[in-house]
């Protein structure tokens, strides 16, 4: 166990524990928000406790990100295989074109098609999240040096074995970088989901904006910022586990 690696994970675990403790301590929020914003009669949003809101938010992002991985990584792998290679330019252009679409617009357009609530939010997060994952999977697999592949085949590996034991490990860092971009964007877009009734940490902010209550806004915004930073750091740590792989990092847009 190398020491910087241990420190990275220990720090993350500590921050995560601190975050959970903080969002569980509703009393603390009530007292400090009441101190900061004495003008507000009510300082915590009555709909749900922070812990519930954080949990809703994580579920929303986790479900859509899981769908993203289940579809996006196999799709990226398929278009780099001989059988699907012809479609690689389409998939690559659609993903780079799609990333130009603002996530809010995608979420907004999901409503006329799917109505309000959880479903359009999950679908919009899933679709938008696909783009960086597919893009980085393709980039990562394409970046595997040819001589490395030849060596694998020379050792008698089948195509499938080479994929599993050589290509995916070499591309892993790029793929995880794509997942990181995808999850961070989704945490942000899920905030807007509160407008269409998907719950999560956006709901106290929206309530605060509507009712002109700054305390509600802070109650939603502060944990959301922490959650995003935590998730980003978690995936950054996972990315570093594959630091031996080539350096192909996704740009966020």
């Amino acid at each position: 166990m190398s020491s910087p690696r241990f420190r990275r994970w220990a720090l993350l675990a500590l921050l995560a524990a601190g975050f959970i403790a903080l969002v569980s301590a509703m009393k603390l929020w009530e007292v400090s928000l009441a101190f900061l914003f004495p003008q507000e009669l009510q300082v915590v949003h009555p709909r749900a406790t922070l812990l519930v809101l954080v949990w809703e938010h994580i579920q929303l992002v986790a479900v859509s990100s899981a769908l993203t991985l289940l579809i996006g990584i196999p799709l990226g792998i398929w278009v780099t295989r001989p059988g699907g290679k012809e479609l690689q330019p389409v998939v690559a252009s659609v993903t780079s074109f799609g990333q130009t679409f603002p996530p809010v617009a995608v979420l907004a357009l999901a409503v006329p098609l799917l109505g309000f609530g959880l479903l359009p939010t999950v679908v919009a997060l899933f679709l938008y999240g696909l783009l960086p994952v597919v893009r980085n999977t393709i980039a990562g697999l394409n970046a595997v040096p040819n001589d490395v592949l030849e060596a694998a085949y020379g050792m008698g590996m089948s195509r499938f074995q080479a994929l599993l034991r050589v290509e995916i490990p070499v591309a892993a860092r790029a793929i995880i970088a794509g997942i990181r971009v995808s999850v961070v964007i989704n945490i942000g877009t899920a905030m807007i989901g509160a407008v269409i009734g998907a719950g999560g940490l956006g709901s106290p902010i929206i309530a605060g904006l509507v009712q002109d209550n700054i305390a509600y806004i802070v109650e939603g915004a502060a944990p959301a910022a922490m959650l995003a930073i935590l998730a980003d750091q978690l995936l950054a740590n996972v990315e570093k586990e594959f630091a031996h792989a080539p350096d192909i990092i996704a740009s966020p847009a």
């Binding site: 900061l36 914003f37 961070v184 945490i187 942000g188 877009t189 899920a190 905030m191 807007i192 940490l201 956006g202 902010i205 605060g208 700054i214 806004i217 802070v218 939603g220 915004a221 502060a222 959301a224 910022a225 995003a228 930073i229 980003d232 966020p252």
Partner: peptide, 20 residues
């Protein structure tokens, strides 16, 4: 890096209190 990670709605929200 950190500021890029923040959800936009949360970032806007966090600026409201100090600015007001």
């Amino acid at each position: 890096n950190v500021s890029q990670t923040l959800p936009s709605l949360a970032f806007f929200g966090l600026l409201i209190a100090p600015l007001s």
